[in-house]
């Protein structure tokens, strides 16, 4: 309908019809939004992560007690109104430690994703896009790093560096960057032969611009998915390091250290370790759900093309 009017109104004789209806455009945007809101996994995952983030940020206002204050009169107290999950063997509020622990876990997750995503994306994209000996060298290096289990690598790095939040984040990032780089490279390899890359060469773009403007943006969806899921493994790794006493140093509250402390009294006070374990599980499940949801919803073009082929 709109097309017919346009053909007559326009100064150009040949005005093709098309998706020109503002109504249609609005509907398309709504449909895109619906893809996210109607994905139950995505919504649940996003809600969990959002709540955890709120908890971490608002910890000073939410937490009923200080996570560090020891109350020797209340060692290993039963849950009460003042201490909803009881206290540990130093008389510290378990719930408050968990709430503050979320700060550490989410920070680790956030920074590891940011660092490994940035470095992995650049390394992988360079390898895939440039090819030749650069690619072979990078791939060899990545293969060597991947040969070590990620956690062991992080363990070794923290042991060498001494433990602090920064060194945990650095270590876990170094362990996970090769994973992102591998995914990035394989995605870039599928993008490189696509016609719009050749078209970019034809209009005279430099390789750097093609890489930054055309290759990397198109490669991001699968990489973001990998990064989201690796945030979950990063949180697990941090908890593991803390549990072994190699993470952020005590008395800072982390989920891993709460488990470790609770372990000594696990037969009498299982709630301490259990609640920390549950926190980790919830965060990991949330991130995995979010990653799966993103995988299903991030690539509208692909969905559209397969849909179009079907007709």
């Amino acid at each position: 309908m709109a097309s017919g009017e346009m053909a007559r109104d326009s100064a150009i004789p040949r005005q093709p019809a098309g998706p020109d209806d503002p109504e249609a455009a609005r509907r398309r945007r709504q449909a895109a939004l619906r893809r996210y809101t109607r994905h139950p996994g995505f919504m649940v995952g996003a809600t969990i992560i959002l709540l955890l983030a709120l908890l971490a940020i608002l910890a000073p206002w939410i937490a009923p007690n200080s996570p560090l204050k020891t109350e020797m009169s209340l060692v290993l107290a039963e849950p009460s109104w003042a201490y909803p999950l009881g206290t540990d063997q130093f008389g510290r509020c378990v719930l408050s430690r968990l709430i503050y622990g979320a700060q550490i876990s989410l920070q680790v997750g956030f920074w590891v994703v940011l660092i490994s995503l940035t470095c992995g994306t650049l390394i992988g994209a360079l390898a895939g896009f440039l090819g030749g000996w650069i690619e072979r060298a990078i791939v060899a290096l990545i293969d060597i790093m991947l040969a070590f289990p990620g956690f062991l690598l992080a363990l070794a790095l923290v042991a060498a560096q001494g433990s602090s939040l920064t060194s945990v984040i650095t270590a876990v990032s170094i362990a996970y960057t090769p994973r992102v780089a591998t995914v990035m490279r394989s995605v870039v390899l599928t993008i490189r032969p696509r016609p719009f890359i050749e078209a970019s060469h034809a209009i005279g773009l430099t390789k750097l611009r093609i890489l930054l403007r055309h290759v990397i943006p198109n490669a991001m969806p699968p990489v973001i998915v990998v990064a989201t899921v690796s945030a979950a493994t990063a949180i697990l790794a941090e908890a593991g390091l803390s549990f072994l006493g190699l993470g952020v140093q005590p008395p800072t509250a982390t989920w891993g250290s709460v488990i470790a402390n609770g372990q000594a009294v696990i037969t009498t006070r299982p709630l301490i370790s259990l609640s920390a374990g549950l926190s980790i599980a919830v965060a990991v499940i949330g991130l995995n759900l979010l990653g799966d949801g993103l995988r299903d919803t991030l690539d509208p073009q692909m969905r559209r093309q397969t849909g179009a082929k079907m007709l």
Partner: peptide, 14 residues
Amino acid sequence: IEIEGQPPDPAFLP
């Protein structure tokens, strides 16, 4: 002698 416009979209048939 061309045919104006685009092939029809089944979602927007007149």
